[in-house]
Amino acid sequence: MIVSIEKCHHCGACVGSCPKNAIFLNDLVLVFSDECNRCGRCVKLCPVGAITMEAKK
C-alpha cells in the first residue's frame, strides 16, 4: 500500500476500519503490517484518497 503524505490528514480512520488491524499510525506515519491482505477497504475509506494499492508483482 502506498500512502501520500501530502494528502494524509493523520486522522486514523483507516486504522479503526481495517478488518485485519494491519494499519498503525506511528506518530504521523501510516505503517502497514504483514497482516495486510490488500482487501482495499482503506483505499475507499480514506476521505481524501491518500491510500493507493501498488500493482501486484
Binding site: 475507499k44 480514506c46 476521505p47 481524501v48 493507493t52
Partner: peptide
C-alpha cells in the same frame, strides 16, 4: 456507498 477514493471530499 463510496465508489471512488476521496469521494467524501
Amino acid at each position: 456507498k463510496v465508489k471512488h477514493p476521496a469521494d467524501p471530499k
